[in-house]
């Protein structure tokens, strides 16, 4: 929880990281690389707000067994926005990628948001 809103923390698999890099930037609505959305050395830790950039629902896909949409990231059930493995918007009405909050690694295994 950050600012009374959910935060998604995801440990990406090498396959998911590769999938995120395989997407040409020019095809994205809000072009960003996975490296820009994670911290150096911690590229497998994708930390984003769990708030759809369309109208603010909590997308599905953070928990085991929830639908993750066509792109293997997150799927917002409200209006059908789909995010990829870097939580970038790929399809649906949302204008932007899931927001990455300000955070830093205080130790290799803990993170402070805000």
């Amino acid at each position: 929880m950050f600012r009374k809103q959910p935060v998604f923390v995801r440990n990406l698999t090498p396959k998911e990281i590769a999938a995120a890099y395989a997407v040409p930037l020019s095809s994205l609505r809000d072009p960003q690389t996975l490296a820009e959305r994670t911290k150096p050395g911690h590229e497998n830790w994708l930390i984003t707000m769990g708030v759809c950039t369309h109208l603010g629902c909590v997308p599905l896909g953070a928990a085991e067994g929830e639908p993750r949409g066509e792109f293997g990231g997150y799927f917002c059930p409200c209006h059908g926005s789909q995010y990829d493995t870097a939580a970038r918007i790929r399809k649906g009405p949302a204008p932007k990628n899931l927001e990455v909050p300000d955070y830093k690694f205080t130790t290799p295994t803990s993170v402070t948001i805000g």
Binding site: M1, K4, Q5, P6, R29, G50, C57, V58, C76, P77, C78, H79, G80, K91, G92, P93
Partner: peptide, 28 residues
């Protein structure tokens, strides 16, 4: 519950026609 969105979120019936127009735009 701010942590969980209901799976099927819809407004009251009297807003449905306008809600459908809102959702009709999926491409820039």
């Amino acid at each position: 519950n701010p942590m969980q969105t209901p799976a099927h979120i819809v407004p009251e019936w009297y807003f449905w026609p306008f809600y459908a127009i809102l959702r009709a735009f999926t491409q820039n």
